[in-house]
Design a protein around this nucleic acid. Structure first.
Lengths: 150, 150
DNA sequence: CCTTGACCTCAACTTAACCTGAGGTTTTAT
DNA sequence: ATAAAACCTCAGGTTAAGTTGAGGTCAAGG
């Protein structure tokens, strides 16, 4: 009965299909955690795999690491998260996915008419001004703030 | 009948709701163009407004400037693009929007089950491996290439 | 004429999400 | 026992899409 050995960073990286540097990075950002062995090497609990999977899944949905971190922080600290814990996250993100899909559908439906239309000023262009609130959770680094939201 | 005066960069920026630096940037990237007046100041044709609108609309859909540039290069050089020219673009992007929406719907439909599921290895996770081809046009800077697409 | 305001260029900074490499230690396999 | 593989830290690089600022020129109004 050895004291729990945990996995090394290389193995985890391999199983997750990410680079070691990514795991270092996530740890630095507080998205995953590890303990160290005698020789200062990282050891991981096996649930890190699910964490990384979830991080990657959420990223695909366009959620930033920042927001993912926030969501993950809702998981219990003291015990290994169970299925129910994870499903809370899933439901949460499902919602924002629904919103995003609705947003894109709206965009799609106005795209053709809009690009062809006569609105030479973006001030009145319906596509340009399509509810920016929704776009905030949108396609990553969109830093523009067209209509003076303040 | 003065020789066509065109618009100054400040006016265009104002009408488009973007910063002057953005127009400089777009020009540098070859997305828009201008000529210079006597004093080396930029002058724009009025169709630059539509160009910028289209650039911004496309960005909202998650298309990169790189791809937008490619699409814009299909516009006629010699004459001012007409409605039909623009509609070709719109149709093109509508298609990729359809694809993206379908992708997100697929993600959404597997999200809950997937996060809660027992796949501890991302190698077999359906959400992680949901057709990466579609994700390529996806949420901006997603640089990961999980399943060795080459 | 002279002062603003608009414009010019060019270099450097910004954010997100990592990656790369150098230089050094630890673990593992032979 | 020793070489190779795996790991460590830390600094600096990368891409996208701009933004900011310095230092200088141009144009318009009084």
């Amino acid at each position: 009965m050895s004291v729990k050995a945990g996995w090394g960073v290389g193995k985890v990286a391999d199983r997750c299909g990410v680079k070691i540097s990514t795991l270092h990075f996530y740890e630095e950002k507080g998205l995953i955690s590890s303990w160290r062995n005698q020789g200062n090497q990282r050891r991981y609990q096996k649930d890190v795999l699910r964490r990384v999977s979830v991080i990657k899944a959420a990223q695909k949905v366009g959620i930033s690491l920042e927001d993912i971190k926030t969501a993950l922080s809702a998981l219990p600290e003291n015990r290994t998260p169970d299925t129910q814990d994870w499903e809370v996250l899933a439901r949460h993100w499902r919602k924002s996915l629904d919103i995003k899909i609705a947003y894109l559908e709206k965009l799609r439906d106005s795209l053709t008419g809009c690009i062809g239309c006569g609105c030479l000023s973006m001030k009145k262009c319906p596509i340009y001004n399509a509810d920016d609130k929704l776009a905030k959770e949108g396609p990553g680094p969109v830093l523009l703030e067209p209509m003076g939201s303040e």
